[in-house]
Design a protein around this nucleic acid. Sequence first.
DNA 1: TCTCCCATGTAAATTGTTACATGATTGA
DNA 2: TCAATCATGTAACAATTTACATGGGAGA
Lengths: 183, 183
Amino acid sequence: MSLKYGLLGLLNYGEMTGYDLSKVFEDSLNHFWRAQKSQIYRELKDMEKSGWVDARMVLQSDRPNKRIFAITAAGREALAAWLGQPLGASFQQPHEPLLLQLFFSGALPVEESRGQIAAFRDYCRGAVELLQSQPAQAIDFYSPEGNSELDPLFWRFTAEYGQRYYQMCWEWAESMLETLDSL
Amino acid sequence: MSLKYGLLGLLNYGEMTGYDLSKVFEDSLNHFWRAQKSQIYRELKDMEKSGWVDARMVLQSDRPNKRIFAITAAGREALAAWLGQPLGASFQQPHEPLLLQLFFSGALPVEESRGQIAAFRDYCRGAVELLQSQPAQAIDFYSPEGNSELDPLFWRFTAEYGQRYYQMCWEWAESMLETLDSL
DNA sequence: TCTCCCATGTAAATTGTTACATGATTGA
DNA sequence: TCAATCATGTAACAATTTACATGGGAGA
């Protein structure tokens, strides 16, 4: 459901092809959402049918022809309605295979669990360090395109979530290791 | 994919009906995984076919008949193989509709975003306080059933993740509010 | 009397992933 | 010469959610 609104949100910055949309997803939204090309094209078709977007064909000779999508008035309304609802409505309980695995790890030799958790800690530490060293270049890159001067602010908020998240996981892993070592 | 192993993990504690499994999911795994009854029955059927679980019928007169599922040797092997793989293999990039909504919230009046974020902060604070006040009663309730004395330890780890997660969200929300107020 | 618990499932819709198919151009 | 980029999609599959269907017994 949210993917439709994500696409609407991007098209609200400017018209784009399905290919462009999938690039922007990879570049900018990748920290908290991934979308397959096949899914994007499917949703675009749906939204065209429901009148949220319009498409126009552009013939090209050197490259494949393309269809450029633009948000319609109805699409803007739908986007605004979605943005207006409380954030809590978009909040989802975590769905973490990692926690599922950990939950049952009592069946494993402690040393093995210890190794697994240590590797996870290293992974999280790496992610934190990466995010700190190259802080959200994509934001500065896209900044001029935003149609509200507030946009980059909110983009930064989401980037900060990512940092805090990995930081939290790192600390959590450290605390588990301490507990295991004190056994 | 993980759901199968979650069910195996539970059946490894003792035999159960599909109904029991769905209860335990609600009671104990709800913080990081939800499973619909329909999904549970389907996976059980699959796993029966692949020989990971056995079912026996119990006829009842006052209540509906039931099918009690037990893990097989092959099921235990599959579970062990899954538990043995690195935690990182189970790690998933966050997939947060909330962040998607926030990402595009530059299109909203700041006051409205402020209100939404404040409500989210209150929600997270409430969750942290709830988790601190009644710390994981389910763990103590189920403890005797665990077949490894390590089980409650790992159960607690997953519960702690939940607390840390909501704590992190709370702090993140606070920091966004500060930023918005300093505009 | 009404709701909740027990207990099993089917059916359909939605959402997400993986693989397949095509084909010219550009840069290393 | 080889891989990557641009650009569109289809098909099949896997996972998840929601709704439907049934029906007795227990407790408020």
